[in-house]
Design a binder for these strands. Structure first.
Lengths: 246, 246
DNA sequence: TTAATTGCACTGGTCTGACCTGTTTTTGTA
DNA sequence: TACAAAAACAGGTCAGACCAGTGCAATTAA
């Protein structure tokens, strides 16, 4: 039964984890449904209990299942939430502090990007930034998060530093799933929306006027502003869906 | 050692996983660094190997570590696309300009690290920095590159920002092969050596005196200085060892 | 009869110690 | 000095034992 899987994985516990994961993904095991007991699994799959347990641990790490002492293992409620294929996004969920650390770095890098953009933006860059800015102005609550992301990306591109661009894109991707939603929640609050619009305007103008100093300041303050409010939103207990069982 | 963690988790393997995760988060274990072997861990933590293995499986599920048969377990990279044989690093080899872009970002991040270190360094951090600094003073041309790297790493750790720490470590690893060699070539030049020593001293003092502003300035200027001379060295055709590719 | 208790049959959690295979380092010989 | 054998070390797996929660059913006490 496992032999076919074993060919590729070269590791029994990994094969078992893949096997069970496939059952879950295929819907053979439904959310909150009980997974066969460890002893049942190891007798059915003809492997040791240690191997089964290690496989279940992997799935626990992926938060695909939850295990309760004395009761058994159960398929988690939410398996859909697109999990970024990045290792460190989980850290964000587990350690709230990480979000703070994250923004600390991001603030710095966005500031540098804006500063460099002010110095190096070509006519074409300016056109792109202009376009993104106008889209942001006319954004609906639904499209705002995307427009915001595009705006910042356009600026990063205008910095003409591929390393910086790449780094920001990586960080962006790390948080996009969680933060995008939060930003969407942030926008409808009228006082915040007005302030953010103004901040975007300041960044935009600074870059157009090729004022690196003002661009740096505006971008830094903007990211700081958003970060602070995201953090507040997070702290005030929007614990969202997470940790289905337990 | 684990007892404190055990209180909340009520499950040894979970406690071990949390323990190691914390080490990673705190920067005590850096990207691509080797985690102690399973047997070492279970003797140090006074638990069975099965418990350790299950803990490692959890971390594997979270993709925080990767395990290789016969070799060991290693901390994952925060920036996935920035892997060694990635198309990106190829870019560096192909276009000399990338080195410039690289240092532009690195200057910024090292500056931030030093600034934060000045604000947040604990007594223990200061001790480590002190130790690294002294090692740097007594370094030989052969050991200088390593000591330099350690010095900067220690400062990054004192920033107490895991995201920043992991980012710098990732960047570091990218260039280590080429830059390490270059720095070694840089050191013997007397005038440069003296200046670098002085720069290190300034950074060291600023952090000790908890002057974030001076630390930022000193670190920024230092990285800028080194970058400039590396660039010069690069341009004048010192193609050096490169492509060592472990 | 009913309520509490006990006991047992589950579940997962941990440990020990053995043996396998793959990797790295050491070492002894050519 | 060079190289191949061997030992030391790494993770992977297994078997069997025992502990600790859970839940139900039979038993017992009110």
């Amino acid at each position: 039964m496992l032999s076919s899987l074993l060919d590729t994985s070269r590791c029994i516990s990994k094969a078992i984890a893949d096997y069970i994961e496939k059952l879950i993904l295929d819907g053979d095991l439904l959310p909150s449904q009980k997974i066969p007991s460890e002893r049942q699994l190891c007798s059915k799959l003809k492997v040791s209990r240690a191997a089964v347990r290690e496989a279940l641990r992997v799935l626990q790490g992926k938060e695909l299942i939850a295990t309760l002492h004395g009761k058994g293992s159960f398929v988690a409620e939410i398996i859909q939430p697109l999990r970024a294929n990045s290792p460190f996004i989980q850290l964000y969920y587990d350690h709230n502090r990480t979000l703070y650390d994250f923004n600390e770095v991001r603030t710095q890098l966005e500031g540098q990007a804006a500063s460099l953009a002010a110095q190096r933006a070509t006519t074409k860059d300016l056109y792109q930034i202009d376009k993104a800015f106008k889209a942001l102005e006319n954004a609906t609550p639904k499209t705002f998060a995307d427009c915001d992301q595009t705006f910042h990306k356009t600026i990063a591109q205008a910095s003409h530093n591929p390393v910086l661009l790449h780094l920001l894109a990586s960080l962006e991707e790390l948080l996009s799933h969680s933060v995008q939603a939060s930003i969407t929640n942030l926008y409808p609050i009228d006082t915040l929306k007005i302030k953010m619009d103004r901040q975007h305007l300041l960044i935009h103008q600074a870059i157009r006027n090729k004022s690196a100093k003002r661009a740096l300041k505006a971008a830094t303050e903007h990211v700081q502003f958003v970060s602070d409010h995201l953090q507040a939103l997070e702290n005030q207990g929007e614990k969202i869906i997470r940790h289905a069982l337990k």
